[in-house]
Design a protein around this nucleic acid. Structure first.
Lengths: 180, 180
DNA sequence: TTGGGGTGCGACAAAATGCCGCAGAGTCGG
DNA sequence: CCGACTCTGCGGCATTTTGTCGCACCCCAA
């Protein structure tokens, strides 16, 4: 992954959400990475084996094989690869697993590009990462709710059940615009 | 810690809750371990340095130094020591930290002796089942707060400022045990 | 029609948050 | 030593949010 951008660190981004993938890819390119995309573990494996990346962002739960498989392979290919795991289904057990398999850091979605870059650790060419501002809790909640709502095709009752939140509360939260 | 019980594996149990410590000690002795007790990291350090244990059970949050300090020392003394971390304030951020420092497994209290003993045998697997349920908003908030708190080296005022949250509110949230 | 799912919303009780202040601690420089 | 700055935890009380309940309505399939 040190193709024509030999001076930019290579990064493999693996996520089955096409929109998220495109947005994050752009943000990471802006921060100086040379990004290669994959929509699944199966798609990512040959890419990684051909050119082990310096950095990787791996969604944990995708169609097909688990992101855990990719973490293990990436780590075996090059122990120096810095792997950040992203997941909308965060749990301590999977965090332990991911780190033991070689992940550098484990982040719950939503996570913005600055947070992801900061999670790689100190990186000399991305000074702007040092000022990473964490999202407010309200922002986080809003994005999470809307993501699950979308997964439930806009069904408010189902979303409330899935989030273990009261429907009335969910309605109220959705009626409010989030602060920036 | 292989004093007169040369045929029983040595185990260092560090927890500032005297009752819990005594109960768990008894249970672990019944399971064949030779248990040494300590009520704090400060108390445990010289014990560990004198005789690095084969196994350790370390509470994360105690008066005085954090259990994370002890994990690091234990791991440096003997990489083969199997360390299980216990905490009533479980978070992904501390789980990641503990595992990176050398912990074998990370368990949320309450955890019984069987669970702890099983945890000593934990090995990373790519076969782990991934959660099908998205995190609740409360869980997401808890994990986010704890991640930023860790980034701010445990400074509550700084964390509150960074999260644009009132300090009192943050204190209250941190005092509550997270939902599982 | 019935039964099952969904929608939005108000009233009121309960819980959480915001705001303020208190008391204490530590660090640093003058 | 003092003052200035930071931090810590916590209670009292006002305000806001959430939980609970119920109402009214909708759609769809049997």
């Amino acid at each position: 992954m040190t193709d024509q951008s030999a001076d930019r660190p290579s990064l493999l981004l693996v996520d089955d959400d096409e929109t998220f993938r495109a947005v994050l890819s752009r943000a990471l390119e802006k921060r100086g990475f040379s990004v290669t995309l994959a929509a699944s573990v199966e798609q990512a494996l040959p890419l990684a084996q051909a050119n082990p990346p310096e950095y990787a962002v791996v969604d944990l739960k995708m169609e097909g094989a688990s992101g855990l498989v990719l973490i293990q392979v990436l780590h075996e290919l090059d122990e120096a690869t810095r792997i950040v795991v992203l997941t909308g289904y965060a749990s301590i057990a999977t965090a332990v697993e991911a780190v033991k398999l070689g992940a550098t850091q484990y982040l719950a979605k939503p996570a913005n590009a600055d947070e992801i870059v900061a999670a790689f650790g100190h990186h000399a060419s991305t000074e702007m990462a040092l000022d990473a501002t964490p999202a407010t809790v309200e922002r986080l909640e809003w994005e999470h709710i809307n993501r699950v709502l979308q997964e439930q095709q806009g069904n408010i009752s189902a979303t409330a059940r899935r989030l273990n939140m009261h429907r009335r509360t969910l309605q109220r939260k959705l009626a409010k615009r989030p602060l920036t």
